[in-house]
Amino acid sequence: MNRDIIRSERAAKTKKTVRSTLTYIILTFWVIIVLFPFYWMVLTSVKSYASYNSEHIPKFFTLSPTLENYSSAFTAVPLGRYFINTVIFTVLTTALMLIVTVPAAFAFSRLRFKGRDAVFTLFLSLMMIPYELVVITNYTTITNLDLRNTFTGLILPSVTSVFYIYLLKENFSQIPDELYYAAKVDGTRDLKYLFKVMIPICRPTIITITILKVIECWNSYVWPRLVTDDPNYYLVSNGIQEIRENGFGRENIPAMMAAVVVISAPLIVLFLVFRRKIMEGVARGGTKG
């Protein structure tokens, strides 16, 4: 009797071990699928042009890594320019987004005025408008205003995201009203209250939406492609497309991969630093840009 129990316990244990081993094998398999392209891109970027093209069967490592591809990525094609453009675009768009979003969220959460709730409902319904519908007119507008191939044309239509206003408004609303009225009694002005109390308290959310916006800007492709045809204004996404089609010559894959590494690195670093914040922010309702 006792032995039976021990045996069945042992069987259960074995079963559990088998199951968890299997789980780890499957998860590790997917880890390889996720990481392999990254490994391959770094590996290829440090192979020399000659050795890459002489490998009929690609090698999984290289014994003579070289950085020449990186230097040609910055000299043979204007990767540096694309990079700087993207930084300018990302910084300005994100800053403008905050300038627009914070006061709007403040108005919706703290100020009381006629029509506020109606406007908020309207804003929420705007979240459902698909980007593809509005991009056509925006393209015509920017073209007619002669803003193609300018930063203004790139930035202005990319600024607003109703979702971020909504996210911040929800966070602002959690701050108790008493704090606001106490500040009012002390004669604190609204603007000062916003900067001294609300923004510091809600800093985590503000950081989250900032990071999400930075990711969105860094990866944006469709709009930059539509409004720029002068390579001096290309961002990294259409820059890499340009490199692919007219850059180093189709065969110089290692140099292309060096450019890909340079483009991908900033966001990967950002992700590793702000891992928790990013994942938390995305889980709260972000979708891929």
């Binding site: 880890v31 996720v34 990481l35 990866n219 996404s237």
Partner: peptide, 12 residues
């Protein structure tokens, strides 16, 4: 597993 989310689709 989350890494592909933050990478540039065009580049990868």
């Amino acid at each position: 597993f989350f890494l592909p989310y933050v990478t540039n689709t065009l580049a990868v």
